[in-house]
Amino acid sequence: MQQLENLYRQIIMDHYKNPRHKGLIDSDRYRTHHIKNPSCGDDITVQSAVKDGIVKDVRHDGSGCSICCSSASVLATLMIGQNIDSAQKLTDNYLNMIMNRPVDENLDLEDALAYQGVKQFPARIKCATIAWKAFEQTLKEWSDNDE
């Protein structure tokens, strides 16, 4: 269990220290959503670019705690290349996992599995979900506007 925790800790720290796909892109190929948690100061903007039903790119930027910032990086890594339908399913699955609701074991959350420990810290659920909720909003815009 300790090892498991260490592994997860490494994933989170790795993405916190070396965030992937960080930095926003000013282009109409992207849909952008910003969420701020004013009580703790987490402030995240997530972008997604979708073409032919496939998530071509995900970008993120902002400031916050390690859980919040690293999860944005993990999110981007996981989502690029998914089709919209599985991107939404993975998002649902992740949010269910964090909130301790039933999950679909067949879906592979990859590095995002590291965040299952967050449910032991209910006060941090917001930190772990803010980027994913922002991403979900961008997906919604794609489905509203383009399909």
Binding site: G64, C65, C68, R124
Partner: peptide, 10 residues
């Protein structure tokens, strides 16, 4: 970040 720290204290 204080939110990381506060979980440790918790």
């Amino acid at each position: 970040h204080p939110h990381d720290a506060v979980s440790f204290f918790d």
